[in-house]
Amino acid sequence: TTVKLGDIKVTFDNPEKAKKYAQKLAKIYQLTVHVHGDTIHVK
């Protein structure tokens, strides 16, 4: 599962960890989390 934020891409083996990371980023940057299959976009 890949978390994308602009040019930053972080890949996790564990989808749950990816989701938590995405939510953490979203909170920090006051953005929202969008899940598209294996990719989680923070924008």
Score class of each variant (00 low, 15 high):
T1N: 05
T1I: 13
T1R: 06
T1C: 15
T1W: 15
T1V: 12
T1G: 04
T1F: 13
T2D: 04
T2L: 07
T2P: 03
T2S: 06
V3L: 04
V3S: 03
V3D: 02
V3P: 03
V3A: 03
K4G: 03
K4A: 08
K4S: 08
K4P: 03
K4R: 12
L5N: 03
L5F: 14
L5M: 13
G6H: 08
G6Q: 05
G6M: 07
D7F: 15
D7A: 14
I8Y: 15
K9I: 14
K9L: 13
V10D: 01
V10Y: 10
V10R: 09
V10E: 01
V10P: 01
V10G: 01
T11G: 04
F12Q: 01
D13N: 10
D13V: 09
D13T: 12
D13L: 11
D13A: 12
N14V: 05
N14S: 12
P15R: 09
P15L: 11
P15Q: 08
E16I: 10
K17Y: 09
A18P: 00
A18K: 00
A18R: 01
K19M: 15
K19Q: 09
K19N: 08
K19H: 12
K20S: 08
Y21K: 00
Y21Q: 00
A22R: 02
A22C: 10
A22P: 00
A22W: 05
Q23K: 09
Q23S: 07
Q23N: 09
K24R: 12
K24G: 05
K24F: 15
L25G: 00
A26T: 03
A26D: 00
A26G: 04
K27F: 11
K27D: 09
K27L: 11
K27I: 09
I28P: 00
Y29G: 02
Q30H: 13
Q30Y: 08
Q30N: 14
L31V: 05
L31M: 12
L31F: 07
L31E: 00
L31K: 02
T32D: 06
T32F: 09
V33W: 09
V33K: 00
H34P: 00
V35I: 13
V35N: 05
G37E: 06
G37W: 06
G37V: 04
D38G: 07
D38V: 07
T39A: 05
T39C: 13
T39H: 07
I40S: 02
I40Q: 02
I40R: 01
H41R: 05
H41P: 01
H41A: 06
V42P: 01
K43F: 15
K43D: 08
K43I: 14
